[in-house]
C-alpha cells in the first residue's frame, strides 16, 4: 500500500473514534494494521510523519498520553492554519 493511502486510512480510523475513545499510538498501530493489512511498524512510521506535520498530534488527558486529530487552536499555534 502506498504511504499516502495508508495515511488516509489512519486519518479515517482516527475520525471514527474522535470524541468516543482516546487512542494511544499502540491502539492505532494495532487497529489500522488489521484493517489495512500492513504491519504495525508501517502504521507507526506513517503516523509519525502525520504527527511531524501536524495532521495528527499528541495529547495528554485522563492521566495518559494519546494521539488525536489536532484542534484548530493547535494548528493556529503551530502556524499550520
Amino acid at each position: 500500500m502506498e504511504k499516502d493511502e495508508l495515511k488516509e486510512k489512519i486519518f479515517a480510523f482516527m475520525q471514527k473514534y474522535k470524541g468516543k475513545k482516546k487512542l494511544k499510538e499502540r491502539d492505532i498501530m494495532k487497529g489500522v494494521s488489521e484493517e489495512a493489512g500492513v504491519t504495525p511498524d508501517e502504521v507507526k512510521k506513517a503516523m509519525r510523519e502525520m504527527i511531524d506535520v501536524g495532521r495528527l498530534m499528541y495529547s495528554y488527558g485522563g492521566g495518559a498520553s494519546s494521539v488525536e486529530i489536532p484542534s484548530e487552536e493547535y494548528l493556529k499555534e503551530k502556524g499550520l492554519l
Binding site: R48, D52, G54, Y58, S59, Y60, S65
Partner: peptide, 17 residues
C-alpha cells in the same frame, strides 16, 4: 488545571500543559 498541550510539533512529551 492540566492536560492538553504536551509538546512541540512532532513531540508528545517535554511540555506539561
Amino acid at each position: 488545571k492540566h492536560g492538553g498541550i504536551v509538546g512541540v510539533l512532532g513531540y508528545g512529551a517535554g511540555v506539561i500543559g
